[in-house]
């Protein structure tokens, strides 16, 4: 197992940007999504998006690892 690839790390950084660093842009009440204030709806959406990012990173790391074994 090697250190994580740059691509996977970038995918890991995406949720940090969406959930954490951009708070000042999405911490607002309008527009409401299905009646839920925007900031709450944003964080709920990111629970799903975060899993998608990690899933992509998982695929990437797995492909890399099995590729590495193949060339050995």
């Amino acid at each position: 197992m090697r250190p994580p690839s740059v691509g996977a790390l970038m995918l890991g950084l995406v949720p940090f940007v969406g959930i954490c660093f951009t708070v000042r842009f999405w911490d607002r009440l309008e527009p409401r999504v299905l009646g839920i204030p925007f900031n709450l709806a944003w964080l709920i959406a990111w629970m799903v998006l975060c899993t998608l990012c990690l899933w992509a990173a998982y695929r990437m790391e797995n492909a890399r690892e099995s590729g590495g074994h193949g060339t050995r």
Binding site: M1, A8, G12, P15, I19, D27, L40, M47, C50, L54
Partner: peptide, 27 residues
């Protein structure tokens, strides 16, 4: 009120950190 939203945020991000660190710790 509002500050409690941090609770909805840190668990997902904790999983991201765990994804990169814990498999190595396990090995």
């Amino acid at each position: 009120g509002g500050p409690s939203l941090y609770i909805l945020a840190y668990i997902s991000l904790g999983c991201v950190v765990s994804f990169f660190i814990m498999p190595r710790i396990w090995e």
